[in-house]
């Protein structure tokens, strides 16, 4: 089948990607601005990066955010994988409709509702707000995304491999660890990374559930942005964008290599 790109297709792709990337590009360029004014170019300078690393509060917030993201993504990965297994391998168990509802709803639910309801819950059970309440809240939100990612992989893979292992006498748990887990591992890693970035990025749910000593980077950035633009935020953003881009590129390369290797082995 010979698909041809028309001029219209090319134009819409070029304009579309320009729209997606130009704002980010401008943000990065202006982080190297010599002037304090964010929109007036004052020559190349890296002074805002230096200022950034001297900013103790911002650094502390980054550390808190990373710890929360790591913990909550880890828990979300375990819970999400279990939920995906339940949805694909358990058929019609009692309460399945409610379960799918609880998995899909948090992904589209406006964050203000999720944030507020979790906060009221934590107050009701008398849990001090702070690091742990944010972690629990993020786990709940992000496990749903992990579920969907892992579920779509479980849907597509070859069940006969599992059946072969069982026929050869492997008990279910052993089959899971020896056959199923390695096969779905890339989707679990993808789910973890997705959960990690979502947690890293969240402002609204963290704002509702934060407490003393648990200021995350988005909360810090938001409060600075409300006061006005600052080149320091541009510098911080550029570092984050750089890290994420590196992470995504290396994840793509790793998964491509593992695909190639598994193809070679077959």
């Amino acid at each position: 089948m010979n698909r041809r790109l028309s001029l219209f297709n090319v134009t819409s792709l070029v304009l579309g990607f320009a729209f997606l990337y130009l704002p980010i590009l401008l943000l990065v360029v202006y982080s190297f601005n010599g002037s304090r004014l964010v929109t007036v170019w004052g020559g190349f300078s890296t002074q805002w990066y230096a200022a950034l690393f001297r900013n103790q509060a911002l650094m502390e917030a980054a550390w808190v955010t990373l710890r929360i993201a790591f913990l909550s993504a880890g828990m979300a990965t375990v819970l999400g994988t279990l939920a995906a297994l339940a949805l694909t391998r358990y058929g019609r168990f009692p309460g399945r409709t409610l379960f799918t509802g609880m998995v899909y709803a948090p992904m589209v639910m406006p964050e203000v509702i999720t944030g507020l309801s979790l906060l009221l819950f934590f107050v009701a059970v008398d849990l001090d707000r702070g690091f742990w309440t944010i972690t629990l809240a993020h786990t709940t939100l992000t496990m749903c995304f992990v579920t969907v990612v892992v579920q779509s992989r479980l849907m597509t893979f070859d069940r006969s491999l599992e059946e072969a292992a069982m026929d050869l006498g492997a008990p279910p748990l052993r089959t899971f660890f020896a056959v199923t887990l390695p096969l779905i591992a890339p989707s679990i890693v993808a789910g973890f990374l997705l959960a990690f970035t979502l947690s890293l990025d969240d402002l609204v749910i963290a704002s509702f559930n934060t407490g003393p000593g648990a200021t995350t980077l988005p909360i810090k950035i938001y409060s600075q942005v409300r006061l006005g633009l600052s080149p320091e935020i541009n510098a911080a953003s550029t570092i984050l964008i750089g890290l994420v881009t590196l992470g995504v590129i290396s994840a793509t390369l790793i998964s491509k290599r593992s695909v190639l290797r598994s193809r070679r082995n077959v």
Partner: peptide, 9 residues
């Protein structure tokens, strides 16, 4: 990349 950062841009 961060939602907040993209809006900030």
């Amino acid at each position: 990349t961060s939602f907040l950062i993209r809006i900030y841009a």
